[in-house]
């Protein structure tokens, strides 16, 4: 059993999985912001029925295990709607909707942390409610939310591996394929673990850089 030969042979294949993994994580973060932010605004400023609906959405997507959501969407919802979606798309959708549910709560907390006087002040200089939210509340709230939002990244990264269950060709799937091809277990699992830890570390570095970039001196919590 020549481990070095196996690794050099299969390493490119394993590395290919990084793109799928990062694709899943990227779409989860992107959808999380695209849907999570409006949901947070709706939950704080919306009318009762809107708040209720968003609450149900959040409860559903945060209360269910990723695995159950993946099975539900891959075998149930997507075929039920007559869509023949590839596994990657289903995985990205599920992680994205889940991301939206989790991130909306981070943004909600941040919006609520902006003092109410700001809204009153904005309204009193003639802004509409929507203008005040967009131009006064959100720019502050987003900066408050950023450290908490960055902390979603490692969770989503590790959750993305569960897409193995529906056969998305990401790191975890490729790892177990290599294991079943070569019958070498431990070293390959550990290489996979190393790649995940590296991705985790590198991603956090990038997010901290973004945090620093959009930070306004003297505003918000100093330590990111």
């Amino acid at each position: 059993m020549d481990f070095a030969a196996v690794i050099t042979e299969w390493f490119p294949y394993l590395i290919g999985g990084i793109f799928a993994t990062l694709g899943l994580v990227g779409s989860a973060l992107l959808l999380g912001v695209l849907f999570g932010l409006p949901m947070a605004v709706g939950q704080v400023y919306g009318k009762r029925p809107i708040r209720f609906l968003i609450g149900i959405f959040v409860w559903f997507f945060r209360g269910l295990p990723v695995l159950v959501l993946l099975f539900l969407f891959y075998f149930g919802v997507f075929p039920g709607l007559g869509l023949e979606a590839p596994a990657f798309l289903v995985g990205a959708t599920v992680l994205g909707l889940r991301g939206a549910a989790y991130q909306s709560q981070i943004f909600r907390g941040a919006i609520q942390s902006v003092s109410e006087g700001q809204m009153i002040a904005a309204r009193s200089v003639g802004m509409t409610k929507l203008q005040s939210i967009r131009n006064v509340i959100l720019p502050q709230a987003v900066r408050v939310a950023l450290p908490g939002w960055s902390n979603e990244y490692p969770n989503i990264l590790t959750d993305s591996s569960i897409c193995y269950a529906i056969g998305v060709m990401e790191l975890m799937t490729r790892t177990s394929q290599i294991v079943s091809q070569t019958y070498i277990t431990m070293p390959i699992y550990l290489v996979c673990a190393g790649i995940f830890i590296l991705l985790n570390y590198a991603g956090m570095k990038v997010l901290h850089m973004i945090e620093k970039k959009i930070k306004i001196p003297g505003f918000g919590t100093g330590a990111a």
């Binding site: 591996s161 177990s176 294991v179 431990m186 699992y189 673990a193």
Partner: peptide, 23 residues
């Protein structure tokens, strides 16, 4: 703690179930 938090739980389960028999 860093290792466990940095790697997916699924991978950890595979290590325990499919990996440990090799040692």
């Amino acid at each position: 703690v860093g290792f466990i938090k940095g790697t997916p739980l699924l991978l950890m389960l595979f290590i325990l179930y499919f990996g440990l028999p090799s040692i």
